[in-house]
Design a protein around this nucleic acid. Structure first.
Lengths: 127, 127
DNA sequence: TATGCTGTTATATACTATATATAACAGTTA
DNA sequence: TAACTGTTATATATAGTATATAACAGCATA
């Protein structure tokens, strides 16, 4: 499993691990029911405490991304694609909230934001 | 000075103070060269330690929003508002890049994003 | 110059989140 | 039984946040 941890970053290690795994689930790099590395192995791999991995896995389970069984291991939970799309839409909504918050601070108008979006979208997607 | 602090929020108090003051500068509620409340008065007003106010003011000075002089007080720096607006626009661009990245992962279309934006913008701004 | 404002610095304490290490415990499978 | 899984408990360390207090220093003015 490819997970890169930054110690200089102010995001907690367990959070970085969570995000890396969520990302791999959402992109399909990790498939439904696929087993995750054991907490001990992953801890050894990326030279992190077992407890830190456990904390990441615990939160992933609580949020419904994985299922953990004592003695067996952890597995990507079998969720439908619609759920994943909803999760992504929530992420987009978070960014939109932040954009509106910033725009309200400095009189940037709705149409200015849409223009900016259209411009960036166009150059990103070669339209 | 109207500053509302939430203790239940996970954003540090000094950060909430910073954001409140930046907001007031950007909206013009605090004008250039206007004096800010003294750290002791503000601390008393909102029932917060002087040191916490100082930390907020220190960071505001480091980021160029205010100027502090021992014995005199703190003042809104006479900074080009256009510069600040450009900084904010860069922040918005970063969010747009991330939105497009997420959208490309799961076939969310440009018009779906714009619809979502219009919807959220409308409910946030009571249009 | 004395008073009363400013901000500054240093010290001590406290709580929480994060991260580590270690050991013992418990479930699963071969 | 052996060798994997995860779980729980304990202890320790560090950093960030927040508080309280006291002493120090600059500025303005009566």
């Amino acid at each position: 499993m490819r997970i890169i941890i930054s110690n200089s970053c102010d995001v907690p290690i367990y959070e970085q691990i969570k995000q890396a795994i969520i990302n791999q689930i959402l992109t399909g790099e990790l498939e439904e029911n696929e087993s995750l590395p054991s907490i001990r192995n992953l801890a050894k791999d990326i030279r992190i405490s077992v407890m830190t991995i456990k904390k990441a896995y615990d939160e992933l389970e609580q949020e419904g991304y994985i299922i953990t069984r004592q003695g067996k291991g952890s597995f990507v939970s079998s969720k439908n694609l619609e759920f994943i799309k909803e999760e992504k839409q929530k992420q987009i909504e978070e960014h939109i909230f932040k954009i509106i918050e910033i725009a309200n601070q400095c009189d940037i108008t709705k149409s200015e934001i849409i223009d900016l979006f259209e411009y960036i979208y166009g150059s990103e997607n070669n339209e």
